[in-house]
Protein backbone atom coordinates (compact mmCIF):
# COMPACT_ATOMS: atom_id res chain seq x y z
CA UNK A 1 0.00 0.00 0.00
CA UNK A 2 2.79 2.36 0.94
CA UNK A 3 4.63 1.28 -2.21
CA UNK A 4 1.76 2.56 -4.35
CA UNK A 5 1.87 5.94 -2.69
CA UNK A 6 5.64 6.16 -3.09
CA UNK A 7 5.29 5.35 -6.76
CA UNK A 8 2.61 7.99 -7.14
CA UNK A 9 4.65 10.72 -5.46
CA UNK A 10 7.91 9.95 -7.26
CA UNK A 11 6.12 9.80 -10.61
CA UNK A 12 4.34 13.09 -10.00
CA UNK A 13 7.54 14.88 -9.07
CA UNK A 14 9.36 13.68 -12.18
CA UNK A 15 6.40 14.47 -14.43
CA UNK A 16 6.19 17.99 -12.97
CA UNK A 17 9.89 18.51 -13.67
CA UNK A 18 9.26 17.50 -17.27
CA UNK A 19 6.35 19.92 -17.61
CA UNK A 20 8.49 22.67 -16.11
CA UNK A 21 11.11 22.09 -18.78
CA UNK A 22 8.44 22.40 -21.47
CA UNK A 23 7.31 25.69 -19.93
CA UNK A 24 10.88 27.00 -19.96
CA UNK A 25 11.25 25.94 -23.56
CA UNK A 26 8.15 27.83 -24.70
CA UNK A 27 9.26 30.87 -22.70
CA UNK A 28 12.67 30.73 -24.36
CA UNK A 29 11.21 30.43 -27.85
CA UNK A 30 9.28 33.62 -27.24
CA UNK A 31 11.93 35.75 -25.62
CA UNK A 32 15.02 35.25 -27.74
CA UNK A 33 15.76 37.65 -30.55
CA UNK A 34 17.47 35.56 -33.16
CA UNK A 35 16.29 32.51 -35.00
CA UNK A 36 19.27 30.33 -34.14
CA UNK A 37 18.85 31.01 -30.42
CA UNK A 38 15.20 30.05 -30.60
CA UNK A 39 16.06 26.84 -32.42
CA UNK A 40 18.62 26.00 -29.75
CA UNK A 41 16.08 26.50 -26.96
CA UNK A 42 13.53 24.37 -28.78
CA UNK A 43 15.95 21.52 -29.43
CA UNK A 44 17.21 21.31 -25.85
CA UNK A 45 13.78 21.68 -24.34
CA UNK A 46 12.20 19.10 -26.63
CA UNK A 47 14.72 16.35 -26.06
CA UNK A 48 15.15 16.75 -22.31
CA UNK A 49 11.50 17.52 -21.63
CA UNK A 50 10.14 14.50 -23.38
CA UNK A 51 12.81 12.27 -21.85
CA UNK A 52 12.00 13.23 -18.30
CA UNK A 53 8.23 13.33 -18.79
CA UNK A 54 8.16 9.88 -20.30
CA UNK A 55 10.37 8.46 -17.54
CA UNK A 56 7.85 9.82 -15.05
CA UNK A 57 5.03 8.17 -16.98
CA UNK A 58 6.93 4.89 -17.14
CA UNK A 59 7.11 4.95 -13.34
CA UNK A 60 3.35 5.54 -13.26
CA UNK A 61 2.44 2.62 -15.43
CA UNK A 62 4.69 0.01 -13.95
CA UNK A 63 6.45 -2.90 -15.54
CA UNK A 64 4.54 -3.94 -18.63
CA UNK A 65 4.54 -3.73 -22.41
CA UNK A 66 3.32 -0.15 -22.53
CA UNK A 67 6.39 1.00 -20.63
CA UNK A 68 8.61 -0.72 -23.18
CA UNK A 69 6.90 1.17 -26.00
CA UNK A 70 7.34 4.46 -24.18
CA UNK A 71 11.02 3.68 -23.70
CA UNK A 72 11.28 3.04 -27.43
CA UNK A 73 9.76 6.47 -28.06
CA UNK A 74 12.43 8.04 -25.85
CA UNK A 75 15.24 6.27 -27.69
CA UNK A 76 13.84 7.21 -31.10
CA UNK A 77 13.43 10.85 -30.13
CA UNK A 78 16.88 11.10 -28.59
CA UNK A 79 18.29 10.04 -31.95
CA UNK A 80 15.97 11.97 -34.22
CA UNK A 81 15.46 15.34 -32.54
CA UNK A 82 19.10 16.56 -32.64
CA UNK A 83 19.28 15.67 -36.32
CA UNK A 84 16.15 17.77 -36.98
CA UNK A 85 17.68 20.76 -35.24
CA UNK A 86 20.93 20.28 -37.15
CA UNK A 87 19.04 20.40 -40.44
CA UNK A 88 17.03 23.46 -39.41
CA UNK A 89 20.24 25.22 -38.39
CA UNK A 90 21.74 24.36 -41.75
CA UNK A 91 18.71 25.78 -43.54
CA UNK A 92 18.99 28.99 -41.56
CA UNK A 93 22.71 29.41 -42.21
CA UNK A 94 22.42 28.89 -45.95
CA UNK A 95 19.40 31.10 -46.54
CA UNK A 96 20.15 34.01 -44.27
CA UNK A 97 21.70 36.96 -46.07
CA UNK A 98 22.64 39.02 -43.03
CA UNK A 99 24.17 36.27 -40.96
CA UNK A 100 27.56 37.95 -40.71
CA UNK A 101 26.15 40.84 -38.70
CA UNK A 102 25.43 38.91 -35.56
CA UNK A 103 27.16 35.57 -35.90
CA UNK A 104 30.71 34.31 -36.39
CA UNK A 105 31.23 31.73 -39.11
CA UNK A 106 34.52 29.94 -39.43
CA UNK A 107 36.26 29.90 -42.76
CA UNK A 108 36.21 26.26 -43.74
CA UNK A 109 32.52 25.63 -43.20
CA UNK A 110 30.52 24.43 -46.16
CA UNK A 111 26.76 25.03 -46.31
Amino acid sequence: MILEWIRFIVGTIILCCGLLIFALEVFGVFRFDFVLNRMHAAAMGDTLGIGISLIGLIIFSGFNFTSLKMFLVVIFLWFASPVSSHLIGRLEVTTDEELENYCEIEDNCQP
Binding site: V35, G45, L77, L91
Partner: peptide, 23 residues
Protein backbone atom coordinates in the same frame (compact mmCIF):
# COMPACT_ATOMS: atom_id res chain seq x y z
CA UNK B 1 9.24 36.16 -39.35
CA UNK B 2 11.32 33.45 -41.01
CA UNK B 3 10.62 30.00 -42.33
CA UNK B 4 12.88 28.28 -39.79
CA UNK B 5 10.75 29.69 -36.96
CA UNK B 6 7.71 27.98 -38.32
CA UNK B 7 9.41 24.64 -38.80
CA UNK B 8 10.73 24.80 -35.22
CA UNK B 9 7.25 25.60 -33.90
CA UNK B 10 5.66 22.71 -35.79
CA UNK B 11 8.29 20.34 -34.40
CA UNK B 12 7.54 21.55 -30.86
CA UNK B 13 3.82 21.10 -31.40
CA UNK B 14 4.50 17.52 -32.48
CA UNK B 15 6.56 16.78 -29.38
CA UNK B 16 3.96 18.23 -27.02
CA UNK B 17 1.23 16.22 -28.74
CA UNK B 18 3.32 13.10 -28.18
CA UNK B 19 3.36 13.69 -24.43
CA UNK B 20 -0.40 14.36 -24.51
CA UNK B 21 -1.07 11.05 -26.29
CA UNK B 22 1.03 9.14 -23.76
CA UNK B 23 -0.78 10.72 -20.82
Amino acid sequence: PRVADRIVAVNMIGTIVMVIITI
